[in-house]
Design a protein around this nucleic acid. Structure first.
Length: 589
RNA sequence: CGGGGCGUAGCGCAGCCUGGUAGCGCACCUGCCUUGGGCGCAGGGGGUCGUAGGUUCAAAUCCUAUCGCCCCGACCA
């Protein structure tokens, strides 16, 4: 029997001053967690019970498609050098040395370790497919931990990895994860959405994120009001309304116009009496290209053209340039390439690369929204001058077209045309087709049915355990506290005798708690000698979905059952209390 | 890493400007009282004022350095 009087449930009347988001405030106030350092938390009794229940759900569902492992948290440097991520991960990886001076890292994720097992053990297509998973602590030295448990430096993740003989096999493993993730989040009582995600620079072909809408979220997701279209901001697109092109002026060839002192898009558009939609925005960047052979970084100019009223999206840019790092050009670099000061840049008159591999020539990437447009206005690469009659493919030739533009709320859904909305959200799960990256770099090979050596194709799949709890709290709270669904709550029912000095009330509460526990319910008996108000406030705070008030009505043979989420209160018969909760919590049985 | 803010009792805060050896509410302990929404009364315990150095007869208070935490931004396969 769990007696509140004997447990450590340190509830607080006030939240710590540095807690901002609801889940942080309430998980601390409810005595679930305590902070040890920035982004590092201790999980106390109530928190740990809840995490255990969440992990059990994850484990049960994952066991239907995969096998549970438990891998080390400490990894040798050499392993991460093989995949190339020892350097790629940079400051985000916690690193340490052992007494002999050997370098180690705390695992941020486990592709390397899993792949190491795979390459050493897997020999034949007959051993595939495999899905291996674990529930393990991950370490990431986040530049800025924040929002309580939402962005931390040590956290629990369920991560799994699939190995398949071919892309069709990966499709199956991927789909299995997709379905299992839906079941897991459904069982956790979450309202979530699945969005197409930016698959990164690592050659991944497909990726979905499982997102929970909440103001506390750090990610932006775009979704359609009408159809089921949903995508990460980094991936989202929209239908654009057609724009009327300007009429050609003069002979239709590029025409120099004097625009003294007019530098910004708005200035120029106003000065020339046109819409920014007919103006080309020129963004000048430098990318750091790493030479495959020498390993040396060399700068390469990357110029972007966008419609005047559009905003560039960093992640889309990153995809467009194959993951190269970019930075804005310095003034001297701009002058060197365009022979013009910033503010009057344009694509005309420069020898652009024909492809990304075209020597050292500057790269010109043009946003899809400019494809097919005519008679635009761009800078003239000359102080105080712009050019009219600029037409892609006619006046200049892009290296490539790409989607570079950030979607704006209210634009039309690419599927159905209804308005799109943009919300902040928390990522609770991510599934990802990895492809051959690790098989390739770390040398995993098996023989196919023809006896030929082939690389297995991989997928990786993650769920943030803490984020499930925090997302639920973000979704289910009011001014008094929060409520968890019974499947993930530390207790299903809290039994509250209003006055433990009253023998009848106390013994009835004891009896109810014992009978319910015997019937298989997770019950917390609040046997503290406190005033009812104190106990009710605490009961409301700590996330338990049902409360049984044992009070004066015991003389009538009844108690009150309160549903935390709705505040709905009903009388229930003391003698039939276990049946009451059977119907409520175990309806199938 | 850039910008801002904060470190005084378990939690929330005042005191600092104008130096004189630390206070309030809640929590905690004891007793009485009370028992349906954080009751009441009385008594009590607890703080090297983040740390180190400096100025001064005297530093929570002024100066310097440093550490930590929070927020905004950058970053986040």
């Amino acid at each position: 029997m769990h007696r509140w009087s004997e447990l450590f449930i340190p509830t607080l009347r006030e939240a710590p001053a540095d807690a901002e988001v609801a889940s942080h405030k309430f998980l601390v106030r409810a005595g679930y967690v305590r902070q040890l350092a920035a982004g590092i938390y201790s999980y106390l009794f109530m928190g740990q019970r809840s995490f255990n229940k969440i992990m059990n759900i994850v484990r049960q569902e994952m066991d239907t498609i995969g096998q549970e492992f438990f891998l080390p948290a400490i990894h040798p440097r050499e392993l991460w050098e093989e995949s190339g991520r020892w350097t790629v991960m940079g400051q985000n990886m916690f690193r340490l040395k052992d007494r002999k001076g050997a370098e180690l890292a705390l695992g941020m994720t486990h592709e390397e370790v899993m792949t190491d097992i795979a390459r050493k053990e897997l020999r034949s297509y007959k051993q595939l497919p495999q899905i291996w998973y674990q529930i393990q602590t991950k370490f990431r030295d986040e530049p800025r931990p924040r929002s309580g448990l939402l962005r931390v430096r040590q956290f629990i993740m369920k991560d799994s990895y699939s190995f398949d003989i071919d892309a069709a096999g990966l499709d199956v493993s991927y789909k299995k994860h997709y379905d299992v993730y839906c079941r897991i989040f459904d069982r956790c009582g979450l309202k979530y959405m699945v969005v197409e995600a930016h698959s990164g620079a690592m050659g991944g072909s497909l990726s979905h994120e499982f997102m929970v809408r909440t103001p506390a979220g750090e990610d932006l997701i775009v979704s359609c009001e009408k159809c089921n279209y949903a995508a990460n901001m980094e991936k989202a697109t929209s239908q654009l309304e057609a724009v009327d092109d300007l009429k050609p002026e003069g002979d239709g060839k590029p025409l120099l116009v004097h625009t003294p002192g007019q530098k910004t898009i708005e200035d120029v558009a106003r000065y020339l009496g046109v819409s920014p939609k007919n103006k080309i925005k020129t963004l000048a960047l430098m990318a750091n290209e790493v030479d495959g052979k020498s390993g040396k970084a060399k700068p390469r100019a990357v110029i972007l053209l966008m419609r005047g009223d559009h905003q560039m999206n960093e992640a889309k840019l990153s995809s467009a340039v194959g993951g190269l790092e970019t930075r804005p050009m310095q003034e001297e670099e701009i002058v060197a390439l365009f022979h013009s000061p910033a503010g009057f840049l344009g694509p005309i008159g420069i020898d652009w690369a024909k492809s990304l591999d075209d020597g050292d020539k500057p790269i010109l990437i043009v946003d899809e929204a400019l494809k097919g447009r005519k008679n635009l206005i761009s800078g003239a690469n000359k102080q105080d001058y712009h050019v009219k009659n600029v037409t892609p493919e006619g006046s200049f030739h892009p290296t490539a077209y790409a989607d570079l533009r950030s979607v704006v709320a209210g634009e039309a859904c690419p599927n159905c045309g209804a308005p799109l909305r943009i919300d902040t959200a928390v990522e609770i799960g991510h599934i990802f087709k990895l492809g051959y990256k690790y098989s390739e770099s770390m040398g995993t090979r098996v023989l196919d049915r023809n006896g030929k050596e082939v690389m297995p194709i991989m997928g990786c799949y993650g769920i943030g355990i803490e984020r499930i709890l925090t997302a639920i709290v973000e979704q289910n709270n009011d001014e008094n506290g929060f409520w968890l669904p019974p499947q993930v709550a530390p207790f299903e029912v809290v039994v509250v005798p209003t006055n433990v000095s009253d023998d009848k009330i106390r013994t009835t509460a004891e009896d109810i708690a014992h009978r319910m526990e015997a019937a298989g319910f997770e019950v917390l008996l609040d046997d503290r000698d406190e005033r009812p108000g104190v106990k009710f406030k605490d009961a409301d705070l700590v996330g338990i979905p049902f409360r049984v008030n044992v009070g004066k009505k015991v003389t009538e043979g009844t108690v009150e059952v309160v549903q935390r989420s709705t505040r709905e209160m009903r009388d229930a018969s003391i003698s039939a209390i276990t049946e009451y909760f059977q119907n409520l919590l175990r309806p199938a049985l």
